[in-house]
């Protein structure tokens, strides 16, 4: 499919500043973190359909089997529920599996083991066992991915106690959060975005971690707070540039972790701006947008100068066709227009 590669290659990301340090691509940053984890701890395992094939899960697992052997880096049967349970059982017995999927859609096959087992084991057995499991997947978009290869399922999972949900937006965070997730003793989902795989950025060579549950202010501003994670941050940035030109100063908060949510960073920002727009790569109803919007009503109502707004996916499944898709996904223009409305209507 040359046209899909063309589309991804046409994505414009800000060029990283080489003076800041070494520049790596997003998959390369992940590859380095997995390599470091495998080298540093014999209990780390990397598995999933195609982790050792030539395309190597977008390049993230390239060379790992050759360097660390078949026993800890291996391809799996097409048995998502079974493998999720196998990873859970291995994690309870001291392994640290990283179970990788090309798309979150495949995780839906494993919900029984993920939601009814992995997330609850530690609670159900009164802390006797721990489940240090990482489940990784890259959300698809474009190229006819359609309804069954593009689902951003973080909203379905945010209300499941016991799970942590990580959504990085930069190569630096992708590496640091992956290492943190592997060292974490609770089951942790990492949702990447397919389009971020073409991003490059500053990534230190050393082993470092980014804390789970802590957001970061990506852009300081005084008029409106945009909160999001993963690819939504890219859109928020593009929108904030357009908005700055018309005199609206946007603060962009990258949550990095959807669960647990960093309430403090959102609350502090709202004290300053009084306006909140939540942007998510998933569906607007009942998910990340809904949860943060409700928290705003519950905790920060007195700081708000205008109603909270949200931009997520509309209440329809993802269409496969290129034409329909243009009407489906949020854009930087949608975001900019919404923010402008928020500032006009007091």
């Amino acid at each position: 499919m040359p046209w899909d590669e063309g589309l991804v290659n046409s994505l414009v990301y800000d060029e990283p500043d080489p003076d800041q340090g070494r520049v790596l691509s997003y998959p390369h940053a992940l590859n380095e973190s997995l390599d470091l984890a495998l080298s540093g701890d014999p209990s780390v395992m990397i598995l999933g359909q195609g982790v050792d094939d030539p395309s190597a899960m977008f390049g993230t697992t390239k060379g790992l089997r050759e360097r660390h052997g078949n026993a800890r880096v291996f391809d799996t049967p097409l048995s998502e529920e079974g493998m999720m349970g196998i990873c859970t059982g291995a994690a309870m017995r001291g392994m640290r599996p990283v179970y990788m999927h090309n798309r979150p859609d495949f995780i839906l096959l494993a919900f029984n083991q993920l939601i009814t087992h992995a997330s609850k084991c530690h609670f159900m057995d009164n802390g006797l066992n721990k489940v240090p499991l990482v489940v990784w997947a890259a959300i698809g978009r474009g190229w006819g991915s359609g309804a069954q290869h593009s689902q951003a399922i973080q909203g379905l999972l945010i209300g499941v106690p016991g799970l942590k949900i990580v959504m990085p937006s930069t190569p630096y965070d992708a590496k640091g959060l992956m290492l943190e997730a592997i060292y974490d003793n609770s089951p942790t989902l990492i949702f990447e975005h397919r389009w971020l795989m073409k991003k490059s950025g500053f990534v230190p060579e050393k082993k470092y971690t980014v804390p789970i549950g802590k957001g970061i202010v990506r852009r300081e501003g005084k008029d409106v707070t945009i909160v999001g994670a993963s690819h939504a941050i890219e859109l928020a940035f593009q929108a904030s540039k357009k908005l700055f030109e018309i005199g609206i100063d946007v603060e962009v908060i990258d949550l990095r972790t959807i669960q647990p949510l960093d309430d403090e960073i959102i609350g502090n920002s709202l004290k300053k701006t009084g306006r909140l727009l939540v942007v998510d790569t998933g569906w607007a109803i009942g998910g990340v947008c809904a949860e943060i919007g409700f928290r705003a009503a519950e905790k920060w109502f007195s700081d708000l100068k205008s109603p909270v707004r949200r931009i997520g996916l509309p209440d329809v499944p993802t269409p496969a066709g290129y034409g329909l898709e243009q009407f489906f996904y949020p854009t930087a223009d949608n975001i900019a227009e919404t923010v402008r409305e928020m500032c006009v209507k007091k």
Binding site: M83, G85, A90, R93, G94
Partner: peptide, 11 residues
């Protein structure tokens, strides 16, 4: 069943 199978893998 898969949890036990995973324990066997760990072993």
């Amino acid at each position: 069943l898969p949890i036990a199978t995973g324990a066997a893998l760990a072993s």
